[in-house]
Structure formats: C-alpha cells, structure tokens
Design a protein around this nucleic acid. Structure first.
Lengths: 196, 196
DNA sequence: GCATTTTGTAAGCGCTTACTTACATATTAA
DNA sequence: TTAATATGTAAGTAAGCGCTTACAAAATGC
C-alpha cells in the first residue's frame, strides 16, 4: 500500500469524518480538503479520485478486532464479572470505531461487497471468540446447555444495540441510567435469566 | 395534511425507497420521478421542493407502533412462549419498516430532531410496553427481580441487532440458522439465563 | 362536446460538484 | 546555493442537480 505522508494522513482522517457524517455523496472534496487544511487540488495530488480516496479510507480504517486478546485476561474471573468486563471493553471498542460503524451503516448499499466484508470479518471474529469462550465454560459445566453461537449473537446484539442508540442515534442525551448500570443489568439478565 | 392523490402516493413510495437506499443527497429528483413513472416537473407540482418531499415522506411513513395491541394476545400464554411470540412479531414489524429504519440510520445527522423524535417515540413505546409486561409478571412472582426497563432494552436490543444484521447488512445470505431457531435461542437465554 | 385539471415534453437557469491545468510559493534535500 | 518536491492560488471544464417556464397532450368532470 502507498506509504502515507502527513498530508495524506490528514486527508484520510478528514475524509473518514465527513464520509461518516455526510455520506459519500454529501461529503464534497472541497469540504474534505478544507477540513484537512489543504487546497482541494492537493487532495487530487494524493488520491487519484474521490472514489479512490473512499477506498483508501476503508482500507486504512478497517476494523482491527481485539476481543481475542481480552479473553486470557478474564479467564480466571467469575463468569458474571468476566461478562461485564467483556461488555465494557466491547462498548469501548465500538466507541473507538464509531465513525467507521456509521460509515458502514450509511453506505453499505453503495459499496456492498467491501463494506459487508469488513463488517462480517469483524462480527465473525467477535462471535467465534465469544462462542469459543462459552464452549469452554460449558465443558467445565459452568454454563447451561445452550447454543454458544446464539449466545454470542444475543450478548453482542444487546450491547451493540445499546451502543447504537446511545452513540449513533444519540439517545444518551435522554438517558437516565448510566452505561455501567445498563451493561451490568444486561449481564445479570444474560447470566441469570429473567424467569424465577 | 394534504390529501394524497395516486400520483402523489407513488412519488412518496419512490422517494422512501430511494432516500433509504441512496440517502437524501444521493437520491436525485430526476431518479425519484423516473422511478415513480412520472415527469420530473410533475414531482414539483405535487411537492414544493425536495426538502418538502422528504418531510412528507417522514410524516407519511412514521412508525405506527403496535406492540401494545399484541400484549393482550399473549397475556395467558406461558412466559417463554409469550416472549417468542413477541420476538417474532417485533421482527416482522421491523421488516415491514425496513426502509424507514434504513432512512433513519443513514440520515439521522441531516435531520436529527425529526428523525430522532420518530425513532425515540417508537423505541419508547416498545420499551415501556414490554417493561410494563415484565412488571406485571414480577408482581405475580413469575419473574425474577431485575430492572424491567433494562430487561426490555436487552430483549429488544438483541432482536433488533439480529434484524439489522440479517435484513439491512444482508448477512442472511451467509447464515445457516433459521430465524426461528435464532429467535427461539434468544428467548431461551433471556428467560433461563446461561449460567448453571 | 366543451371546460377544467393533470401530466408530459422540451428547454433552460443558476449553482455545485469532481477534477484539471498553469504558474507561484514554500519547504526540503543535496 | 541550487535543485527537487510539495503545496497554494487562480481559473477553468464538463457534467449534473434542483427547480422553473411554456406549450402540448391526455384524462376527467360537467
């Protein structure tokens, strides 16, 4: 891949921000350049076209999943405590990737193959990692008998939806419960269930 | 509200479709008209401007929440069976509103107040309805002690996330488990938990 | 059968967009 | 100190967009 200069890097950062907030069409090359603090003609010296810039943004900011590295850290923790740590870290990772997630949701139909590939790689890694963790605990008879894949989907799903409503749909302005209370409540329900 | 003619109705349907797949900026009035099978000049005879058309689309296709009407139907069912019915109906309602949901996700930053209001009204109604149901069952000592609001968020969240990945991010092309298996698995986990 | 309403066709305006060319200036490297 | 490289300024092109005007044609209503 082309080595990025300082100017090129600023262009990419500006582009990610504007592509994710305005969409591909709504983000003009004029505005991307201005936001990056350069002349528009300079943008076209670094990137052949707007479309190539968009592709570079996707390549540069694709997900770097890291839940795998987290599991050894919670291996010796009690199950419920471990799940809370995983939920909190997952939320933090999503928050760091907020702009890329917004970009994928907004433009998934403009570049379906690429964006779905990025997203799927990310989701599959998460799901498989968490499902593997559940399988291990089931072998140790710590967990009940349920489909680990579905369990992973359920858990990540409720956390992602909460992240989505708080950070992307900005409901956090109207929320009374803290993130900690909410994630803790999710974990409690996931671990203990809701029936008597 | 202005009474919609047949032509006006087709324009609105075409606009919803193109606004949700291409975004507000990416959906041109030329294409909206063509897709509706009319001349572009006719579009401007029915709607003062592109922006007024967009607003009419929001007003016309705002959510019509209907989970409330469902609860009496499941009141006498066993808890787990009732939850599966609720999950299935919720998924169906989301599927019917797929384009509006896509529109909200894509354009929430262009029209934050309006779109967030629509979405929040929808989500609040769902959450409150489901939380009320949980409270009733808790009073009857059928459910454990947990925050009904957080329970509602967790349940709706995992269902929505699954819907989002299947129907909007189109992962269903790569999915082996059926929707029924997945929702059933979600409900089982939600009701019984995952710990032994 | 005629009047009214609705829509189509055609042309166009003013503006914006992505992108290019040419020359000047600033910065960096030799 | 000079050469090379990177960027800025200015002007411009071609295409497309939202929207309008004028007239013709089709559909509807009385």
């Amino acid at each position: 891949m082309q080595e990025q200069t300082y100017t090129g890097q600023r262009i990419l950062e500006s582009a990610l921000h504007l592509f994710s907030t305005r969409g591909y069409v709504g983000a003009t090359t004029r505005e991307i350049a201005k936001n990056a603090g350069i002349a528009e003609v300079t943008l076209f010296r670094h990137f052949e076209s707007k479309e190539k810039l968009f592709e570079s943004v996707l390549n540069t900011y694709s997900f770097l999943p890291a839940l795998k590295g987290l599991l050894p850290q919670v291996a010796d923790k009690p199950y419920e405590e471990a799940m809370l740590t995983i939920a909190t870290r997952f939320y933090e990772k999503l928050t760091h990737r907020k702009e890329m997630i917004k970009l994928i949701q907004a433009e998934v139909q403009r570049y379906p193959e690429k964006l779905l590939s990025i997203h799927k790689t990310f989701v599959d890694e998460l799901r498989q990692t968490l499902a593997g963790y559940f399988k291990d605990l089931q072998k140790k008879k710590i967990l009940a008998d349920f489909d680990p894949e579905i369990g992973a989907m359920a858990f990540l799903g409720m956390c992602f939806s909460y992240f989505n409503s708080q950070e992307i749909l900005m409901h956090k302005k109207h929320t009374q419960k803290t993130k900690e209370e909410t994630l803790s409540g999710f974990v409690k329900i996931f671990v203990r269930g809701t029936a008597v």
